[in-house]
Nucleic acid binder design. Structure first.
Lengths: 332, 332
DNA sequence: TTGAAAGCGGTACCAG
DNA sequence: CTGGTACCGCTTTCAA
């Protein structure tokens, strides 16, 4: 069933059917009704490809994420998807696994589609990809990535602030040996988290620190802790780059015979839903994913009244959420 | 940059460029090179809409899931996405939230796209949607859903068997008061899990049982346990419909002052990665998501040699994975 | 208020 | 081995 079929059956031209379906022009009520009856009767759906080709417009957004298995990314994707669907848009996503080459490939793929807008929520970066994004004419949102351009909206979180609050809090509990568990996000934003840790720790001269790195997953968190412990460093507090890795960290610490938080405190980052279901419930830093998704949608949506209202840079303030995985350092 | 631009610059026809790009016919090496040089130089990407329209073919698969937040669905989606991408396909998904109306809408949307194939991995069902799927000419895979048709592959798991093993195991540990925690999946497959529980329990005359229902999430699991406990029923073992809900169940039991597995044993279903990171690590039933994703891809992929090799019905055997959340019932 | 027709950017058949 | 060209299904002027 095509537009043409519908038109024939309704005894009108394809142009009119198109008008009815898109409310793009005033059509006499009677013909309008007639057309709608037919389309419903046959459950007609316009071919998206033809629509996209002809109109040059699309109702599809794209989103690129680093690791969809990590609830942080998944939540944003999910919320954005719901919001977009509600508004009559579709969402397609690509996963990069933190690999710059995959990021570049994903951007190329997305831009070729074409799309109405693209959200790039990744922790890695890649020159050519950024280049293409800035040259692309349509709305782009980048999260924690440096890319400037006319149609680019940047959303950033103040990791450093979140990190500071975490370290300060732990320090106030008496912790003096802290370890940072990160993952192989090779570039900026991740580094930013790690750098933030380093910088913050430096401000506490009596605090010793160490770092361990692995993949972004519970298993990675587990391995990182394993390394750390094997290295001989005995932290009284472990700061994980995110909650996802903290899950594994908690497990490995327990398996190593260390009690959390009695023997060692653990913190995460992101405040994913799971974090309060862990045992012990995780002390972490909240990053409002729902709000981030909303902001992304607003920046992407072309039918904004306050066009460009959401343009430029948006800053997200992180806040510490204290739960059960942190406690005063033991006198040792 | 369009095909035409490339053709002009290379001094050939659009047909030739198309041939080169698709390896669809033999082209003289020299012209082939020339064309490729241009396309790379300008980083040309064919417009997917035009391709889809013209060819009638697509390199896009669709997947519909009930709850993408549940790692069971996410894992399948993720694996399928990777596999598909590797093979040069794209994957788009829709989430239904277990709502039949959303399932119907998702199917309509997917079929209109159009796609090269569609995977429907949901726990609900809807008449019209099933109808459309069977009438659609292209490859369809349904997981745990009843839909028969020429181009439909069905993948089913033997829930009942998994459930039996679980109940038998618990019974052998001395448990006589069991509760089932399910979610509001209104139709078949979920019911199937619950029914499987009921049927299995019936075979053990001395086993008392109860059921609680909530949403498919950790929070839901928590609430279900809350209801259960409030009802006065004191189970010595709790069987959760899936691991995702078990996460919340574990938490609520702990908050209620019950120790797992000392006071009450808990089991899940699916064997999601997280299950071994929980505390205590969850006893569950393994459902091989990677393999399921592989099977789906094979059934969907049009370029199969052993065409139809994966047709008809495929059965997945579940197996019990014993971890720490189950133990002998206490003498009470 | 409606119809006719020109594309949108590819694909694939038919000649040459 | 390569070019010409008729579509694919829909949107959007331009006229009527």
């Amino acid at each position: 069933m095509t537009l043409d079929d519908v038109a024939k059956r309704a005894g009108v031209s394809t142009a009119t059917v198109s008008r009815v379906l898109n409310n793009s022009a005033v059509v006499r009520e009677s013909t309008r009704k007639r057309v709608l009856t037919i389309t419903e009767q046959f459950n007609y759906r316009p071919n998206r490809f033809a629509q996209g080709l002809a109109g040059g417009k699309t109702r599809t957004f794209g989103m690129i994420v680093s690791n969809i298995e990590n609830p942080f990314f998944l939540d944003i994707l999910h919320t954005l998807e719901e919001t977009a669907t509600q508004a009559g848009f579709e969402l397609v996503y690509e996963n990069t696994d933190y690999q710059p080459t995959r990021l570049a490939a994903a951007v190329d793929l997305m831009l070729a589609r074409p799309l109405a807008g693209l959200a790039v929520v990744v922790s890695e970066t890649e020159q050519r990809a950024v280049q293409r994004l800035t040259e692309w004419g349509r709305p782009v949102v980048v999260f924690d990535m440096d890319a400037k351009g006319d149609s680019i909206t940047q959303i950033k979180t103040r990791y450093e602030k979140g990190m500071q609050r975490t370290v300060e809090y732990l320090n106030s509990l008496g912790h003096r040996r802290m370890a940072f568990v990160g993952h192989h996000g090779v570039l900026d934003p991740l580094r930013e988290r790690e750098n933030a840790f380093q910088r913050t720790v430096m401000r506490f001269p009596d605090v010793e620190s160490a770092t361990a790195t692995s993949t972004d997953s519970p298993l990675g968190g587990r391995q990182a802790i394993h390394q750390l412990l094997a290295s001989g460093f005995k932290p009284t507090a472990v700061i994980c780059v995110n909650d996802f890795m903290a899950i594994g960290a908690l497990r490995e610490l327990r398996d190593a015979g260390l009690r959390v938080p009695k023997d060692v405190s653990v913190t995460g980052f992101d405040n994913i839903q799971l974090s309060e279901y862990l045992y012990p419930a995780l002390t972490t830093v909240n990053l409002p994913r729902g709000r981030i998704a909303e902001l992304i949608f607003q920046a992407l949506n072309p039918s904004r009244d306050q066009a460009r209202a959401t343009h430029g840079q948006i800053l997200i303030e992180p806040e510490l959420v204290v739960r059960e995985s942190t406690a005063p350092a033991r006198q040792s």
